[in-house]
Structure formats: C-alpha cells, structure tokens
Write a protein that binds this DNA or RNA. Structure first.
Lengths: 374, 374
DNA sequence: CGGAGTTCCGTTAACGTTTACGCTCTGGAC
DNA sequence: GTCCAGAGCGTAAACGTTAACGGAACTCCG
C-alpha cells in the first residue's frame, strides 16, 4: 500500500524541468509554452498527481471568501440555514474560510443586486437561494464565467451553470406527506388541498405531483385538489384558502408546503374547520408549535435548514479546496415532526441557533479528554 | 478583524527562548524544565495560540490509524455504517486517515479480543459498537488511558471514559413510533407489543419507555405490553412473539426496535394476524422491503447507519486533529420510511453502499466545473 | 549595434511545524 | 586532571506549495 504521493518535484524531475514551470503549467499561469504545458499535464496525469492541500494552504495563506445570499425570511428557516453555514465554516480544519452574509430584507427584492455585489467583490464562491430561478439564471451564469462557483440552497436554478445544489428531496417529502395523509384519514373520502409557493418553481411542482400521484395510487378515495399558490404572501394564503374552504364542503385535509402555514390555519379556524381537517405542514418555527401541540397540525415535514446550510458550504469548500469531484446534487430526506418528538426538534433547533458560543476557545494542545461524560 | 494568528515563533520571541523549546513544552516532550514549560504554557494561553494544522500535517506526515470494530450483522446496517466511515475518511481533505476494519463475525463474540488487538496495534483512535457495554467498559477504559480515544456508535458505553458517542435519539424514535402507532390505530382499543434487544442496554430501555410514555399520554386507549427481549436471535424473536400472539387476543400493534423484524412478521403471519396488526419496525434492509410494499409493515424507523458512521469518524478525526472541543454526544433524528418514500431510501442506500467508485480519480488541477447538471 | 521589451524558464524564500542533531553546562566517577 | 552522562536548550533541515525575482534567449526598433 501507500507509495509516497507524487509531488511537483517528482513531475519536474521526470521532465527535466523545474518546479516553477510545473506549477505554472498546472495552474495555467502565463509564462509556459503550450508545448511544455501539455507535457506537464500529461506527466501529471500519468503519475496521478494530486496537490497536497496542507502545503498549498500553508504556502498561500489566502482565505476563501464566500458570500451567502439568502432572504431574511418570515420564519426561522433562513436563520437556521445561515447558522448551519456558520457552524460548518467554523468546523473546517484549515480555517481558511470567511463567510460574508448578504441578506435580502424581503423575498425576491434585491436578489440580483446582492449577487452582482458579490461578483463585484470578487468572492471565491457563492451560496444562494434563487427565489426566482429564471431571473437569476443570467447573473449566476456570469458568476460561473467569472470562475466563481455558485451553490443553490433549497431551490435549484436549472440551466444556470451553477456548480451544484442542496435541498430536500421533493419526491421523498411529497410522498411521505401523501402517505401519512392517507393513513391519518383512514379510509375517509374527500379531497385534499395543497398550497405551494408557485408552480413555476421546479421543486414545488415536483412536490405537488409527488403528493398527488402517491395519494392517487395508494388512496384512491382521496382526491388532490388543484394547487393553491400563495407566493409566501400571508394575505394571499389566507384569502385563497378561506375561499376554498367555503366553496368546497368535502375538504378533508390540507398539505401546506410553504412557510405560510399560519394563515392557512387561521383560515381553517375562521371557517370552523380546524378540528375537522387533517393538516400537514412544512418546516418548524415558533408560531407553529402550539398548533402541533394541540394536534391541529398533525405532522410537519421538517426541511432541515441547518443541514442544508452545512452541506451547501461543505460542497463549495470541497470544490474550492480540491477541484471537487463529488456529487453536486444533494437531496436530503426530510424529518417528520409530530407531538411525540416535537421537543427533541425544538431543543436541537435552539441549540443550533445559539451555537455561536466559545467552542473555538483558546485551549492547550493536549487537552485531556478522559473523564466520564455519561 | 483577523490579526495574523500567533505561531510558535511568536511565543518563543516573546519569551526570549527558541521554537524548539516552545514545541517541547506544548507537547510535554522531555527536555524542558518545569519552570520554562509553565511559562510557555502561560504565554501560549495568553496569546491564544492555536496550532496551524496544515503546517503540522505537512511537517509530520504521519497518518492517523483508526480501528473500526463492528459486527458483521445480519442486516445491511453495519455495512452501511462502515461505508459511511469509509466515505468520511475519503472526504477528509488532509487525507491523513487510514481506516482498519476489525469486523466480528458474530454479535458479541470476539469483541473484547478485537479491541485488545486494536490497542496492541497502537492505533490512534477507535470506533466501536459496544454490543454489551458492561463487558467492554474495562477495555475501553484501558484504551483511553493508553491515550487512544474511543467513539461508540449506535450504543453508548457509559462509565467507560469513551471520548463520545453517536447514535439515534432514543426519545425521538420511540416517541414518533408511538405517535404514529396511535394515529394509525385511530381510536381502536388494544395493546401494543414492543420487542427490544435487551432492557439492560440503556438505549433500548430508553426507547421502550419513550414509546410507552408517549402512547400512554396521547393514546390512553392503547396499552403498551411488557417488552419482548429477543437479543437479536431470530428463533427467540419468533418464539416469544408467537407465544404472545397466541396468548393475547387483543394485540393491535407491534413495534419492533431490533433488527429481527422478519421473524416477528413470520410469527404474525403464522398466527394469522399479519393483516390485522399495525406494525412499525426499525431499519431498512432487503428482506423488509416486500413487507413495506405490501403494507404489512406500515412504517419503519430508519436509523441512518451511513450518517452514524460518518459522524463517528468525523468526531474522532476532529479530536485527533485539533484536540477537539465539540459536542461529544451526537443524537440523530431517525428517518421515517413508508411505502411512499421507500424508493427514495432504497436508491440512496444502494448508492451509499456502492460508492467505492473512482471519485478520487486523478484529475487535473483546474477542472472545469461549468456545464449544466440540470 | 545597443538598448528595450518579450517569452520562457530556473531559483529561492517564504508558510508553521516537527524532528534530528548539536551545543553548553553541571556534577560525579575515575 | 580527563571523561562521560544527562539535563536543558538552540539550530536547522525537512514537508510540498506558492510567488516573486532574475536571467537567458530572442525579437523589434531606432
């Protein structure tokens, strides 16, 4: 096993040239003829050269600047994403990552500007939530061309050249919601309302159709209604749902895929349906807690924002550090929160959000780790 | 922000001594007087010294050897744990980790010997599944005293001095199982059987009591039976459950917390109860799949072995690399698998298990990452 | 033909640690 | 007196990469 890895020196030696030349060739810096460059690349490939990251970091000492462009958000979702990113940045051993947050106060406003600003600032990488993918397609493409990798979080921006994306698997979450809905309703007939942000967003339409098709195939006695688009606007969510509840007497359940579950619940309450509806929501935030405790919301699909943030940053960092070869499409499985395990998640959530503690306190080198933790 | 971090040189300069002395003092190597050592430590603390890991690794070039002591297992659980560990080891940027697997063919047999062997081999760290914690308490303590950190996976070994442990949160999984059981049974009366490995294991009794208390408080019409201990022995599981099913006519549901769900299902089938019982199992493996598809098993609590493996190794590595300050008790939330999202998990599982691919293929340095993945 | 500007390449000093080696004392045995 | 041992400390060469500098050869222009 383990032959010593090949170094720049090995390559130089085997070519009768110098380390400097090899280095320039591998980084296509100016100052190498096309011919030598080709030979270097060839030999490097043959010898299976892989750069020593420790040496690289030690030598260059440049820190990677990463811009995180996310909305403020109406729930704690984005706070959790950001704290996941912060945690991951801190836990990187090389400590060469610096995160800059560019937070948009309102959803969709100033997204482009913030992205432009990041590009102008010459950051090394970007984590972004593309709330309207088509509008951001062009700027993301521009970033990529400027050699700044972009990772999308929560929502993808297809055809944009982005490096990758991390989000919740839409099929897994839509299907589990449908399966639970069917079980909970236990043979009853009726129809199910589904609220989404906007059917133009891939993730949302996928989630809807996963829900719809799972319900259709396993619980044919239940019927999925056409999606209610709320665009995360509370009034819109309330109005549309209220109208729906009034018009149709046979609504048996609601699946809320957006953050705007509270107005939906309010609409149900005002329509005097709250205790007759089986409601499944998405995400977990303070305002939702009493509804879960009282069973008005029977279950909620937790999209693990903290984990999404962690993974997005890790993906970016891996790519920047070693030219990356990993999967660039990460689809997480969501968690299911009900009354029973609610406290577990609330505890975790508050831990994660307040984890800006010491953690990185100065310490001696050989900390004693013994002693019982149990 | 960012002043340049303090180095050994800074400490040496500020003390009028040399780098060598500072280094020896910080690592309590021989060759330093107690007085200087104390002064060095003091100054290091004042200046907030933290070693530069890149430099350390570059200089020493010693790889960390980690022993992974896990059972063969009757399901794919431990294969997934091991593959999670492998994946994490490969994704460590410094590439200074070498994993040695010491796999026990049968549960509980040769565990101690394998642990002793690892200690004798002078590995730098150990990941272990302590199938009988009390028997391993002493050897683990010995490892710790020999300055080999030990991380437990899946099950804890309390009072053993182990560095930490990663597993599934028992409360979260027991409670969600109970909550689902209650919902699925939807007001029916009856009692619920629970099989566990052994009530002497902390995790198992915790899971049982979480289940029991959640069921009691939310669904008082359902009653939790005394636990059935199967010790992961198929015949024992079958025999005890078959007997239980014969004796009690009012069993409405079964919660299987062990790997031995197939014999339980067989017992239910032989007692002609399979279609009248609401069954929730644990973990996900090929033999279980048809039962989930046919709804004989209504849901299974997936304990995310891959993630457990990853996190266990990460914990160990973080500690070894930087003297660790992170939380050493990691409790994961389990995933819920039902018919609807089964395929998602099966796909992931097979991906994870077969991920020994190229991934680390030789590559040029500046890989083009553009191009659309969508 | 001399100088200025290229292009291509070699050399070398960092980066912060580790490790091996070597020096200077002191004290004791011969 | 010499010789040796050892404790306490300084020195310097690695580790693999980056980045800056310098030099040779060659071209272009007056």
């Amino acid at each position: 096993m383990g032959k010593p890895p090949t170094t720049l020196r090995d390559i130089a030696l085997s070519l009768g040239t110098s380390i400097g030349t090899v280095h320039r060739a591998l980084h296509d810096n100016p100052g190498v003829s096309a011919a030598t460059k080709a030979r270097v690349l060839q030999v490097a490939r043959n010898l299976g050269y892989r750069p020593n990251l420790a040496a690289r970091y030690l030598s260059s000492k440049k820190t990677l600047r990463i811009s995180v462009n996310t909305p403020q958000g109406t729930t704690s979702f984005w706070d959790e994403v950001r704290s996941g990113i912060r945690d991951e940045a801190e836990s990187i051993l090389l400590e060469n990552v610096e995160v800059e947050f560019r937070t948009c106060p309102t959803l969709g406003e100033g997204e482009e500007e913030a992205l432009e600003a990041a590009i102008r600032d010459q950051v090394d990488g970007i984590v972004i939530f593309p709330s309207s993918p088509q509008k951001l397609r062009a700027p993301i493409r521009r970033a990529t061309r400027a050699n700044i990798p972009v990772v999308c979080v929560a929502t993808d921006a297809p055809q944009s050249g982005r490096l990758g994306m991390v989000g919740i698997d839409t099929l897994a979450s839509g299907s589990i919601a449908a399966d639970l809905m069917g079980r909970f309703l236990n043979g009853k007939e009726g129809c199910i309302a589904v609220t989404v942000f906007d059917m133009d967003i891939t993730e949302h339409s996928e989630k809807y159709s996963a829900f719809q098709s799972t319900l259709e195939s396993f619980y044919p006695n239940l019927q999925t209604l056409k999606p209610v688009e709320d665009h995360d606007i509370e009034k819109e969510a309330y109005r549309k749902c209220r109208k729906l509840f009034e018009e149709r007497g046979d609504v048996a359940g609601v699946y809320v895929t957006t953050e705007a579950s509270v107005p939906v619940l309010q609409a149900a309450k005002d329509a005097k349906l709250l205790d007759r509806l089986t409601i499944i929501t998405t995400d977990l935030f303070p305002d939702l807690v009493p509804y879960i405790r009282s069973s008005a919301v029977i279950a909620t699909i937790y999209q693990r924002p903290h984990a999404q943030g962690e993974l997005a940053l890790r993906m970016l960092h891996e790519f920047l550090a070693e030219g990356g070869r990993r999967s660039h499409q990460v689809a997480l499985a969501p968690h299911l929160v009900m009354r029973g395990n609610l406290d577990f998640f609330l505890r975790r959530q508050s831990q994660e959000l307040s984890a800006k503690e010491k953690r990185r306190a100065p310490r001696e080198n050989n900390a004693e780790y013994a002693g019982d933790f149990a």
